[in-house]
Design a protein around this nucleic acid. Structure first.
Lengths: 187, 187
DNA sequence: ACGATATTTCAGAATATTCCGAATTAAGGA
DNA sequence: TCCTTAATTCGGAATATTCTGAAATATCGT
């Protein structure tokens, strides 16, 4: 696929960004390419466009699928798999959040629970240290529970909530000093 | 400092976890150590306890400070710097969120804005591709704006909101099918 | 079943990151 | 000031990650 200058720079920026969020460069770039392209692309064309090995694309695609960020499609008269990016950004963001919760938060909670359980037979640890570990466990559990609650809301509702911003809470704190902002108001 | 078995396992788990969130192992372990210790510790003792080079501690401490996760303190009659972890987890989480927004989200928005600006003179890019880039820009900007709104709320209000969970939105969607859950209800 | 094309696997090369330790700089105290 | 101790810097070693290219495997049409 022929990349225009802006597409190229978009993909490059995404590569950077992705690596800060725990994806590797290739994975991030493939998502970016599929996202701008907006049309299904076969693996070899992805490899050619991004100038990476075909095998690398194969691995990266598997990872993107594990995040739920791309889907496999087919074109008639073409045996090759084609891939499309999830272009709805709410959906994409929630997929990533789901995956991170499942892979990182949940195991962390479990590990902390394990620590707390072990702490009962560890006579070298202080009460307050245990209390701090418990605090962290409870904090993560509360955050996870909140996420699960919010996650069940329909997307439209989430969008509304986000547009409302802090107004939700303002209902309960009517008297607040007005926010001073230098830039032009958003939205 | 003498570590009990549970403390050690806590620190080890944190090292794992931290590396998934973009910190390196040493940085994460130092935070974990200071967090369980609950008391200020000098750099050389941190190095000794975690069995890492003193210089590594120096570097890692600088990074933890840049995240606002630890603070420097002093003990009378001791020339050495001592360090304490931020033990309030709300504060810590918000500090990390602030830093990530500033370091990652804001620059990404700027980069996308740059792409959009350049797109006006890029005649090889399609209208719909530009529209998708714009969609991503707007999405991030909306998320960032929401975060700024929410960020200004006092911590107590945030805690309340979190405890309320999805009930906030339920006010506006009164008729929902009851959630079926296998486990015991939380809280 | 066979050949053609598509995909995946994997060992090791290339690259990037983390970490150590020696050297340097900074900060007291006498 | 000079000596002692604390802290930092930084080159390069150790380690971890990513990427490639060749080989193996799978899939499809005939």
């Amino acid at each position: 696929m022929q990349l225009s200058p802006v597409m190229e720079s978009f993909i490059l920026h995404w590569g950077e960004m992705g690596s800060r969020w725990g994806l590797n460069r290739t994975v991030a770039q493939i998502y970016a390419l599929l996202y701008v392209a907006g049309t299904p692309l076969p693996a070899d064309e992805i490899a050619g466009t991004l100038k990476v090995a075909r095998s690398n694309v194969s691995t990266s695609i598997r990872e993107l699928q594990s995040w739920g960020l791309i889907a496999r499609t087919h074109a008639i008269g073409d045996r090759r798999d084609h891939f499309v990016a999830e272009t709805d950004l709410w959906t994409a963001a929630l997929r990533v959040a789901d995956a991170r919760k499942r892979r990182e938060i949940d195991p962390a909670i479990a590990a902390l629970a394990g620590c707390l359980s072990d702490a009962r037979t560890d006579d070298a640890i202080g009460k307050d240290a245990v209390a701090r570990i418990r605090a962290m466990h409870d904090f993560l559990e509360a955050a996870g529970g909140w996420y699960e609650d919010v996650r069940e809301l329909p997307q439209s509702k989430l969008e509304t909530l986000m547009k409302m911003g802090a107004k939700v809470a303002r209902l309960e704190t009517p008297a607040r000093k007005p926010k001073k902002k230098k830039g032009k108001g958003r939205r």
